[in-house]
Amino acid sequence: QTVVIGDTTYHLNNPEAAQQIAKELAKKYGLKVVISGNTIKLK
């Protein structure tokens, strides 16, 4: 699972954790979560 935040890319072996982290950050910073395949992007 790949999480992309701005110009930073994180690789996590746990998809659920990756999605949870993405949701928390999106909520905290008012970002939009875009999931395509096994890549999660925060914009």
Score class of each variant (00 low, 15 high):
residue 1 Q to F: 15
residue 1 Q to G: 09
residue 1 Q to Y: 15
residue 2 T to V: 12
residue 2 T to A: 10
residue 2 T to H: 07
residue 2 T to G: 04
residue 2 T to Q: 08
residue 2 T to D: 06
residue 3 V to H: 02
residue 3 V to T: 03
residue 3 V to W: 08
residue 3 V to D: 02
residue 3 V to I: 14
residue 3 V to C: 12
residue 4 V to H: 07
residue 4 V to M: 10
residue 4 V to Q: 11
residue 5 I to T: 02
residue 5 I to V: 07
residue 5 I to A: 01
residue 5 I to F: 12
residue 5 I to R: 03
residue 5 I to N: 03
residue 5 I to S: 03
residue 5 I to Q: 04
residue 6 G to V: 06
residue 6 G to I: 09
residue 6 G to A: 06
residue 7 D to I: 13
residue 7 D to M: 13
residue 7 D to S: 13
residue 7 D to Q: 12
residue 7 D to T: 14
residue 7 D to G: 13
residue 7 D to H: 13
residue 8 T to Y: 14
residue 8 T to V: 14
residue 8 T to F: 14
residue 8 T to G: 04
residue 8 T to H: 13
residue 8 T to K: 13
residue 9 T to Y: 09
residue 9 T to G: 02
residue 9 T to R: 08
residue 9 T to W: 11
residue 9 T to H: 07
residue 10 Y to Q: 02
residue 10 Y to T: 02
residue 10 Y to N: 03
residue 10 Y to M: 09
residue 11 H to M: 08
residue 11 H to V: 11
residue 11 H to W: 12
residue 12 L to M: 10
residue 12 L to W: 12
residue 13 N to A: 12
residue 13 N to V: 09
residue 13 N to Q: 11
residue 13 N to W: 11
residue 14 N to C: 07
residue 14 N to V: 08
residue 14 N to H: 08
residue 14 N to F: 11
residue 14 N to G: 07
residue 15 P to E: 08
residue 15 P to F: 14
residue 15 P to D: 05
residue 15 P to L: 12
residue 15 P to R: 10
residue 16 E to R: 08
residue 16 E to A: 11
residue 16 E to W: 10
residue 16 E to N: 07
residue 16 E to V: 08
residue 17 A to T: 13
residue 17 A to V: 12
residue 17 A to G: 04
residue 17 A to D: 12
residue 18 A to H: 04
residue 18 A to C: 08
residue 18 A to V: 11
residue 18 A to I: 13
residue 19 Q to P: 03
residue 19 Q to N: 06
residue 19 Q to E: 10
residue 19 Q to V: 13
residue 19 Q to T: 08
residue 19 Q to I: 14
residue 20 Q to P: 00
residue 20 Q to I: 09
residue 20 Q to Y: 10
residue 20 Q to F: 10
residue 20 Q to T: 10
residue 21 I to L: 15
residue 21 I to V: 09
residue 21 I to F: 15
residue 21 I to M: 14
residue 22 A to S: 02
residue 22 A to W: 09
residue 22 A to Y: 07
residue 22 A to V: 08
residue 23 K to E: 14
residue 23 K to W: 13
residue 23 K to S: 10
residue 23 K to F: 13
residue 24 E to G: 04
residue 24 E to V: 11
residue 25 L to G: 00
residue 25 L to A: 00
residue 25 L to M: 05
residue 26 A to D: 03
residue 26 A to Q: 06
residue 26 A to T: 03
residue 26 A to W: 14
residue 26 A to R: 06
residue 27 K to H: 09
residue 27 K to M: 12
residue 27 K to F: 08
residue 28 K to Y: 11
residue 28 K to H: 05
residue 28 K to D: 04
residue 28 K to V: 05
residue 28 K to C: 12
residue 28 K to E: 04
residue 28 K to Q: 06
residue 28 K to A: 04
residue 29 Y to T: 05
residue 29 Y to V: 04
residue 29 Y to N: 05
residue 30 G to D: 04
residue 30 G to V: 03
residue 30 G to T: 03
residue 30 G to S: 03
residue 30 G to A: 06
residue 30 G to R: 04
residue 30 G to F: 06
residue 30 G to I: 02
residue 31 L to T: 04
residue 31 L to E: 04
residue 31 L to G: 04
residue 31 L to Q: 04
residue 31 L to A: 06
residue 31 L to F: 11
residue 31 L to V: 09
residue 32 K to Y: 11
residue 32 K to I: 15
residue 33 V to K: 00
residue 33 V to I: 14
residue 33 V to M: 11
residue 33 V to N: 01
residue 33 V to Q: 00
residue 34 V to G: 01
residue 34 V to A: 04
residue 35 I to N: 02
residue 35 I to A: 02
residue 35 I to T: 03
residue 35 I to W: 05
residue 35 I to K: 03
residue 36 S to K: 10
residue 36 S to I: 13
residue 36 S to A: 08
residue 36 S to Y: 11
residue 36 S to H: 11
residue 37 G to M: 04
residue 37 G to W: 04
residue 37 G to H: 05
residue 37 G to L: 04
residue 37 G to V: 04
residue 37 G to F: 05
residue 38 N to T: 09
residue 38 N to M: 06
residue 38 N to L: 06
residue 38 N to S: 08
residue 38 N to K: 05
residue 38 N to H: 05
residue 38 N to W: 05
residue 39 T to R: 04
residue 39 T to K: 05
residue 39 T to P: 00
residue 39 T to S: 06
residue 40 I to R: 00
residue 40 I to C: 01
residue 41 K to L: 15
residue 41 K to G: 03
residue 41 K to T: 15
residue 42 L to V: 09
residue 42 L to D: 01
residue 42 L to P: 00
residue 42 L to G: 00
residue 42 L to M: 03
residue 42 L to S: 01
residue 42 L to F: 10
residue 42 L to Y: 04
residue 42 L to A: 00
residue 42 L to Q: 01
residue 43 K to E: 15
residue 43 K to L: 15
residue 43 K to Y: 15
residue 43 K to A: 11
